[in-house]
Protein backbone atom coordinates (compact mmCIF):
# COMPACT_ATOMS: atom_id res chain seq x y z
CA UNK A 1 0.00 0.00 0.00
CA UNK A 2 1.35 3.37 -0.98
CA UNK A 3 2.13 5.59 1.96
CA UNK A 4 1.74 9.27 1.39
CA UNK A 5 2.36 12.21 3.59
CA UNK A 6 -0.81 14.24 3.54
CA UNK A 7 0.45 17.24 5.38
CA UNK A 8 2.53 18.21 8.32
CA UNK A 9 0.74 20.88 10.28
CA UNK A 10 2.46 23.24 12.63
CA UNK A 11 3.27 21.63 15.92
CA UNK A 12 1.46 23.24 18.78
CA UNK A 13 3.78 22.47 21.58
CA UNK A 14 3.27 25.23 24.09
CA UNK A 15 0.87 25.32 26.97
CA UNK A 16 -2.18 27.39 26.30
CA UNK A 17 -1.98 27.15 22.53
CA UNK A 18 -5.31 26.37 20.94
CA UNK A 19 -5.20 22.91 19.45
CA UNK A 20 -7.14 22.13 16.29
CA UNK A 21 -10.51 20.53 16.66
CA UNK A 22 -11.07 16.88 17.16
CA UNK A 23 -14.22 14.97 16.48
CA UNK A 24 -15.48 11.69 17.81
CA UNK A 25 -15.64 8.45 15.88
CA UNK A 26 -18.16 8.67 13.05
CA UNK A 27 -18.30 12.47 13.04
CA UNK A 28 -16.89 14.86 10.46
CA UNK A 29 -13.58 16.26 11.60
CA UNK A 30 -14.60 19.84 10.85
CA UNK A 31 -17.81 19.84 12.85
CA UNK A 32 -16.29 20.47 16.23
CA UNK A 33 -15.18 23.78 17.62
CA UNK A 34 -11.53 24.23 18.49
CA UNK A 35 -10.68 23.40 22.01
CA UNK A 36 -8.02 24.64 24.31
CA UNK A 37 -5.21 22.27 25.12
CA UNK A 38 -4.04 23.18 28.57
CA UNK A 39 -0.82 21.24 28.69
CA UNK A 40 2.05 20.58 26.36
CA UNK A 41 0.44 18.72 23.53
CA UNK A 42 1.15 18.60 19.85
CA UNK A 43 -1.32 17.89 17.16
CA UNK A 44 -0.33 17.12 13.61
CA UNK A 45 -1.33 15.41 10.44
CA UNK A 46 0.95 12.49 9.83
CA UNK A 47 1.53 9.92 7.14
CA UNK A 48 -1.47 7.84 6.17
CA UNK A 49 -2.30 5.03 3.84
CA UNK A 50 -4.08 5.97 0.65
CA UNK A 51 -7.66 7.01 1.02
CA UNK A 52 -7.21 8.41 4.50
CA UNK A 53 -5.47 11.03 6.52
CA UNK A 54 -4.40 10.86 10.13
CA UNK A 55 -4.59 13.43 12.90
CA UNK A 56 -2.32 12.69 15.81
CA UNK A 57 -2.43 14.08 19.33
CA UNK A 58 0.89 13.55 21.05
CA UNK A 59 1.55 14.42 24.69
CA UNK A 60 4.78 15.11 26.52
CA UNK A 61 4.45 11.85 28.47
CA UNK A 62 4.64 9.84 25.24
CA UNK A 63 0.90 9.25 24.88
CA UNK A 64 -0.48 9.35 21.36
CA UNK A 65 -4.00 9.21 19.98
CA UNK A 66 -4.52 8.97 16.24
CA UNK A 67 -7.71 9.66 14.35
CA UNK A 68 -8.14 8.24 10.87
CA UNK A 69 -10.21 10.35 8.52
CA UNK A 70 -11.68 9.04 5.27
CA UNK A 71 -12.13 10.89 1.97
CA UNK A 72 -15.55 12.09 3.13
CA UNK A 73 -13.92 13.77 6.12
CA UNK A 74 -15.41 11.31 8.62
CA UNK A 75 -13.35 9.93 11.51
CA UNK A 76 -13.58 6.20 10.79
CA UNK A 77 -11.00 4.92 13.27
CA UNK A 78 -9.09 5.82 16.42
CA UNK A 79 -5.90 4.20 17.73
CA UNK A 80 -4.27 4.98 21.06
CA UNK A 81 -1.15 4.30 23.07
CA UNK A 82 -1.47 6.30 26.28
CA UNK A 83 -0.29 6.51 29.88
CA UNK A 84 -3.77 7.47 31.13
CA UNK A 85 -6.82 5.79 29.65
CA UNK A 86 -8.23 7.88 26.78
CA UNK A 87 -11.62 9.47 27.43
CA UNK A 88 -13.81 7.28 25.27
CA UNK A 89 -16.73 9.67 25.64
CA UNK A 90 -14.57 12.18 23.81
CA UNK A 91 -12.95 9.88 21.24
CA UNK A 92 -15.72 7.39 20.53
CA UNK A 93 -18.64 9.79 20.99
CA UNK A 94 -21.97 8.06 21.30
CA UNK A 95 -20.33 4.73 20.45
CA UNK A 96 -18.77 4.78 23.94
CA UNK A 97 -22.16 3.82 25.39
CA UNK A 98 -22.34 0.81 23.07
CA UNK A 99 -18.88 -0.23 24.23
CA UNK A 100 -19.78 0.17 27.93
CA UNK A 101 -22.96 -1.85 27.63
CA UNK A 102 -21.23 -4.62 25.72
CA UNK A 103 -18.47 -5.11 28.29
CA UNK A 104 -20.59 -4.87 31.46
CA UNK A 105 -20.70 -8.65 31.94
CA UNK A 106 -17.01 -9.09 31.28
CA UNK A 107 -16.13 -6.32 33.75
CA UNK A 108 -17.86 -8.23 36.54
CA UNK A 109 -15.79 -11.37 36.07
CA UNK A 110 -13.24 -11.88 38.85
CA UNK A 111 -9.69 -10.76 38.27
CA UNK A 112 -8.50 -7.50 36.77
CA UNK A 113 -9.42 -6.93 33.14
CA UNK A 114 -6.49 -6.18 30.87
CA UNK A 115 -8.30 -6.62 27.56
CA UNK A 116 -11.75 -5.91 26.19
CA UNK A 117 -13.33 -6.48 22.82
CA UNK A 118 -16.54 -5.33 21.22
CA UNK A 119 -17.69 -6.28 17.73
CA UNK A 120 -21.27 -5.16 17.55
CA UNK A 121 -23.06 -3.86 14.50
CA UNK A 122 -20.90 -1.23 12.86
CA UNK A 123 -18.53 -0.83 15.80
CA UNK A 124 -15.33 -2.69 16.66
CA UNK A 125 -13.28 -1.76 19.74
CA UNK A 126 -10.13 -3.46 21.00
CA UNK A 127 -8.88 -2.08 24.29
CA UNK A 128 -6.06 -3.56 26.32
CA UNK A 129 -3.11 -2.86 28.60
CA UNK A 130 -2.53 -1.87 32.17
CA UNK A 131 -2.13 1.38 34.07
CA UNK A 132 0.65 3.37 32.40
CA UNK A 133 0.29 1.50 29.11
CA UNK A 134 -3.21 1.60 27.65
CA UNK A 135 -3.44 0.58 24.00
CA UNK A 136 -6.15 -0.16 21.50
CA UNK A 137 -8.14 0.87 18.49
CA UNK A 138 -11.70 1.31 17.36
CA UNK A 139 -13.30 1.61 13.96
CA UNK A 140 -16.61 1.80 12.14
CA UNK A 141 -16.94 -0.89 9.50
CA UNK A 142 -19.23 1.19 7.29
CA UNK A 143 -16.77 4.09 7.15
CA UNK A 144 -13.60 2.15 6.31
CA UNK A 145 -12.17 3.22 2.95
CA UNK A 146 -12.44 0.39 0.46
CA UNK A 147 -9.38 -1.85 0.36
CA UNK A 148 -8.40 -0.75 3.88
CA UNK A 149 -6.98 -3.37 6.21
CA UNK A 150 -7.83 -2.77 9.84
CA UNK A 151 -4.33 -3.80 10.94
CA UNK A 152 -3.16 -0.56 9.32
CA UNK A 153 -4.95 1.26 12.16
CA UNK A 154 -2.28 1.58 14.78
Amino acid sequence: MRRIVVAVAALLTMAGVAAPAHAALGEPLSSVQSEQAKTRASRSSVAAASGASVQELRLADGSSIRQYVNAQGIVFAVAWSTRIKPDFGQWLGHHAATFDAAVADAARQPGLKRSAMVDQGDLVVQSFGRPGAFNGKAWLKSQLPSSWQTDAIR
Partner: peptide, 23 residues
Protein backbone atom coordinates in the same frame (compact mmCIF):
# COMPACT_ATOMS: atom_id res chain seq x y z
CA UNK B 1 -1.74 -4.61 46.07
CA UNK B 2 0.04 -3.19 43.02
CA UNK B 3 3.68 -4.27 43.06
CA UNK B 4 4.46 -3.69 39.38
CA UNK B 5 7.42 -2.11 37.63
CA UNK B 6 6.71 1.55 38.43
CA UNK B 7 7.21 3.38 41.74
CA UNK B 8 4.09 5.56 41.75
CA UNK B 9 0.70 5.05 40.18
CA UNK B 10 0.59 7.91 37.70
CA UNK B 11 3.88 9.82 37.66
CA UNK B 12 4.50 12.77 35.37
CA UNK B 13 1.13 12.42 33.64
CA UNK B 14 -0.61 13.52 36.86
CA UNK B 15 1.59 16.43 37.93
CA UNK B 16 -0.96 18.87 36.52
CA UNK B 17 -4.74 18.69 36.42
CA UNK B 18 -5.06 19.15 32.67
CA UNK B 19 -4.52 16.08 30.56
CA UNK B 20 -5.96 16.45 27.07
CA UNK B 21 -7.83 13.47 25.75
CA UNK B 22 -7.69 11.34 28.88
CA UNK B 23 -9.92 10.59 31.85
Amino acid sequence: LGIGMIGVDCGVSCLTSAYPGGY
